[in-house]
Design a protein around this nucleic acid. Structure first.
Lengths: 154, 154
DNA sequence: TGCTAAAATGAAAACGGTTTTCAGTTTCAG
DNA sequence: CTGAAACTGAAAACCGTTTTCATTTTAGCA
């Protein structure tokens, strides 16, 4: 997920802040994740690179990086507090209910749904959180289901 | 939100469970709320009717009523864990990010989106979790936004 | 190169919401 | 009436998050 470390470093510097080794580790951990991640997941992942990293710093950094727009907070169905790289914020996640593998999909046109909801409720809708789940191709095959082309769409 | 107490009592009875005074108080508290409510809000509201009600019971009841489909869990603006009465129809929830008020919308046709996601990822999609958030009509007006008749079919 | 002030850090304590434990009460079937 | 199961509230335990605090790192500068 394209998170330009230099650019982020610049944004921080403009505030007199720094992109330290710890912050870099947190940033990378979120960027490399295949789905939204909770603070503890970030902690575990980032610790591989930066073993002396503390959980406190993870929280502080997630907060900070959200503030400057590098990350985005999302409400996951499981963990309420989860983070995704800001670039992926408008993509959505498909999670395999068998193996947990997650993929992003970006070709999502929610306009019709959002418009319908706005029409029905009168809300001015500004955000949507969508998470799909099902069976990934690998699990489908493993379960003996013939591997139909992805474009099949059924 | 129409929550038919008799029907719920029946659903509970089918499991050998009961709609006690306390559970009834919790149910009513959520049903009467104008927005999504947190466990503590339910506690406070239900206590007016049932002063000896304990917070523990509120948690247990909210869990139970969600399980049988009488309530729906949503992500509130402040509190992650919030509840709204579940409409009879299987719908989705729109939550106001200002005041927490929630509405259901049922005219949701996710087929296009789901198909697109399946096409892009190769997943066989079986479930979706969708939550919209934005600004409810009342908050929109309060914020000085002209009341465009979104709900009036405009 | 040293020095200073600000930024940043981790460990531990504090905090607050949720869950579990437990002993006692209510309800229902027989 | 009696026994078993459902149900309850208070208190304790639990767990994720935030705050506190003493220490370390860093950038700017003489």
């Amino acid at each position: 997920m394209a998170l330009d470390a230099d650019q982020i470093a610049g944004t921080l510097a403009a505030r007199g802040l720094r992109l330290t080794r710890q912050r870099r580790a947190v940033l990378d951990a979120v960027a490399e994740a295949s789905s939204s991640v909770s603070p503890v997941q970030v902690f575990d992942a980032a610790r591989v690179r930066c073993p002396e990293l503390g959980l406190t710093t993870v929280y502080r950094t997630l907060e900070l990086l959200s503030e400057i727009g590098a990350l985005r907070r999302v409400h996951g169905p499981d963990h309420c507090e989860a983070f995704v790289p800001a670039g992926a914020a408008h993509g959505h996640t498909v999670v395999c209910s068998r193996c947990g593998r997650a993929m992003e999909f970006t070709e999502c046109d929610m306009r019709a749904v959002v418009d319908a909801a706005a029409r029905q409720t009168g809300f001015r809708i500004t955000e949507h959180f969508l998470q799909l789940s099902g069976e990934c191709p690998a699990c489908g095959e493993r379960a003996g289901r013939p591997h139909r082309a992805a474009a099949d769409g059924a």
